[in-house]
Structure formats: structure tokens, C-alpha cells
Amino acid sequence: MRLALLMMAALMAACGSSEEVADVAPSERAKAPLRVYTVSYPLAYFAERIGGAAVDVTFPAPAEIDPASWRPGAETIEAYQKADLILLNGATYAKWVERVSLPASTLVDTSESFQDDYIIIEDAVVHSHGPEGEHSHGQTAVTTWLDPRQAVTQARAIQGALLAARPEQGTDFEEGLAALEKDLEALDARMEEALGSDAPFVASHPVYQYLARRYGLDLHAVDFDGDAWHDLEHLLEDHPAKVMLWKLDPPADTASRLRDMGLEIVIFDPCANRPAAGDYLSVMEENMARLQSALSR
């Protein structure tokens, strides 16, 4: 009898090991606020407006840095990897995204729906060095949010992603989006009215393409990250602008020389990074007021 039991025990032990096979599915995250990471401040602002208390939005770029040229460190990328949603601007903005590892399921390209409308930068260097043929690195304008109508589309993409992640809070997200849309449409209407001008403009950096396209501005840019004086003088010969847009205050000697050339400097902050005071809407309102004031003179 004992022998029979021993045999049974041996067989049960063998079969018993087969019972411990069920893989536990990854645990559902607690219903804490959705952790949302973004690659630019406007996306963070839109997510905060739409998600309200249901989201915990992080835009980790340091305040003094242009996020377009920023590259986060490994620890920051690990934080991105743990987010529930990662909001991308698309249009080749934040090129670092291409070179890091982010979870495919959490990425949301907010401008994907209008990618056919991206502005192609015609003067990007095209090169070839192998069987893959000609190519260029970075060839679209990136500051999509400077066109408020595109910003609305991006906000809708964010709302869609939040809704997919938390369907039960859909009503809150819809209300948040409706309020944001209303503000962006009002901003668009005011900018359309304020910027309706045939006057030629120049810009210190090639970042205002979508703004210029939306409001029909006759705007050409040089790149003051390099030695742009020659390009500027050459440009002004055929493009007699009186107003020059800058992202930030230029150095004093640069400002003085520009004034000597008859150019009025207007700060138009693209608001890619979180402003020291105010928010995306207030910064755009201030931009608009400064430009309107310059145009009226």
C-alpha cells in the first residue's frame, strides 16, 4: 500500500510541476492619474487642459533649453519609458526620439493626421554616399503648433489617446477639449485679424513657417545661429522688411546693428518650452500684441 502511495506521490509530483505554468498577466496599473510625458511644452499644455486632474503631465526639458535641440539623458528616457502616454509632436520635431528606445504602444504622434501638410524645408542639404541614394537629415518645419488650427488637430489627437487609455473619463476629456478648442479658435480669429498684413517680415530663425502659412505672412528667415549678416543684407535687397521676429531678445550689439539697418525687433516666442510666467495662450497673445504694435507704427 505504501509503495502504491509512493508511486502516486511520484507521479503527482511530476504532474504537479505542470500546474505552476500560468503566466501572470502584467498587473493593471492603479487608477492613479495617467502619467503623460511630452516632447514640447505646447503638447504638455494641451494635455493638461484636456486631462485636468486625470493626468499627470511631465515635460522634462530644462527651462533654459530649446527642446528642439535637446537630448535627454538615460535617466530621463527611463522616465519616458515608464509613462502611460508619450506625446510626440511629429514633423521631425525632437529628433532625439529617433535615437532612443520608447515603448511603441505608448507613442502618440499628434500631427500624424496632417503629415501631408508638413512644410518641406527646401534648402536642406541633400546628399548621397551609397546604394540607398539621395537623402537629407531633417527636412520639415517643426513648430506645427504656431498654426492654431493645427494645434486644434493635435489637441484632438491627445484627447483621442487619453480617451483610449481611460474611456471611463471620456466626458471629462471631451469637456476639456471643447474648452481648449474654443480658446484656440478664438486665438486664431484674433491673430487672423491682427496679422492681416502684406508687409514683408524677416525672422532670425527658420521656425515661423506654419505661422506664416496660416496668416499669409510674407516672411523669410535667416539663421542667426550662424553668421547670417551677409544672408540678411542679401535678403533685404529684394525683401524690404521693417520688422524682424526673434525667439528671444538678441544680444545688445546684434540688436543695435539691426536697428541701424532699419529693422524693428519683435519678440515672437514660439513657446516650445514652458514659459516663466503665463501659458501657451497668454504667450501667443503677447506675441500677437507685440507684432500688432510694430505693424501699427
Binding site: P26, A74, S101, L102
Partner: peptide, 20 residues
């Protein structure tokens, strides 16, 4: 992608997951 490690419940013994 890094989701793989979560789905397979793989733990890092030393170091960290890839970021770049």
C-alpha cells in the same frame, strides 16, 4: 521595444534597460 520586458516579466539583475 522596452515593453517586451514588462510583458515577459523579466527583471534586470544588473544595470538597466536600453535607452539609446
Amino acid at each position: 521595444s522596452v515593453d517586451y520586458f514588462d510583458r515577459r516579466e523579466l527583471a534586470v539583475q544588473t544595470g538597466r534597460l536600453f535607452t539609446f
